[in-house]
């Protein structure tokens, strides 16, 4: 069935690389001090997520992830970083409260991670997928977007329009000529 032997192992290796990219990107995004590195971590994480979407039988979403998150969201955040100066305040000596708060945040996130992992591992997921009614390809997706979900599709375009106008209205006042 496979075109060449070992294709399955090759895919597994690529999967591990993609997974490490996503997880490492997420770690960089939340743990660095400088915000610009954090944005780069987010972009890395989104590249990894795009690979995961590819493994989940959805190349269209993989491309959309790169296009929207890496191409639009991260670039917009970079612009905001250039306009404001958002670096974390320099830490000379951390106070006990700050340390305690960081430890508490770490503990809370570890608890969340452990609980969710346990939940996902213990659940007896059905091994074989139920009967498929479509194959989930791009033409099927397009037909679904313009027939079943056409109202939601129009609403999301309206939301985006309102968001653009709202962003202009909010960011406009206060600017003066030099």
């Amino acid at each position: 069935m496979n075109a060449f032997p070992g294709a399955e192992h090759f895919a597994a290796v690529i999967f591990v690389v993609v997974m490490a990219t996503a997880l490492g990107g997420a770690l960089i995004a939340v743990s660095t001090t400088r915000i610009i590195r954090s944005v780069c971590g987010l972009a890395l994480c989104c590249m990894g997520l795009a690979g995961l979407y590819y493994f989940l039988n959805s190349p269209f979403l993989a491309l959309m992830e790169i296009l929207i998150y890496v191409g639009a969201v991260c670039v917009t955040i970079v612009f905001a970083v250039m306009l404001a100066e958002p670096d974390e305040p320099p830490v000379g000596r951390k106070s006990w409260g700050a340390r305690l708060w960081g430890a508490g945040a770490l503990l809370a996130s570890l608890l969340v991670f452990a609980a969710l992992t346990r939940l996902g591992a213990d659940m007896p997921w059905a091994s074989a997928p139920v009967e498929r009614v479509t194959d989930g390809s791009v033409p099927v997706l397009g037909v679904a977007l313009l027939s079943t979900y056409s109202l939601a599709f129009e609403m999301i375009s309206l939301v985006l329009l309102v968001a653009i106008l709202g962003a202009l209205v909010i960011a406009r006042p206060g600017r003066s000529n030099p």
């Binding site: 996503a22 939340v30 989940l56 708060w101 945040a105 996130s109 969340v112 969710l116 992992t117 996902g120």
Partner: peptide, 25 residues
């Protein structure tokens, strides 16, 4: 595996949300 990755991303997001001291973070 995918659920574990998603759980990790969520936990990292919660950690960042609690720890960060800037709005962009």
């Amino acid at each position: 595996v995918y659920l574990t990755i998603a759980a990790f991303l969520f936990a990292a997001g919660v950690y960042g949300l609690l720890r960060r001291r800037t709005l962009i973070g």
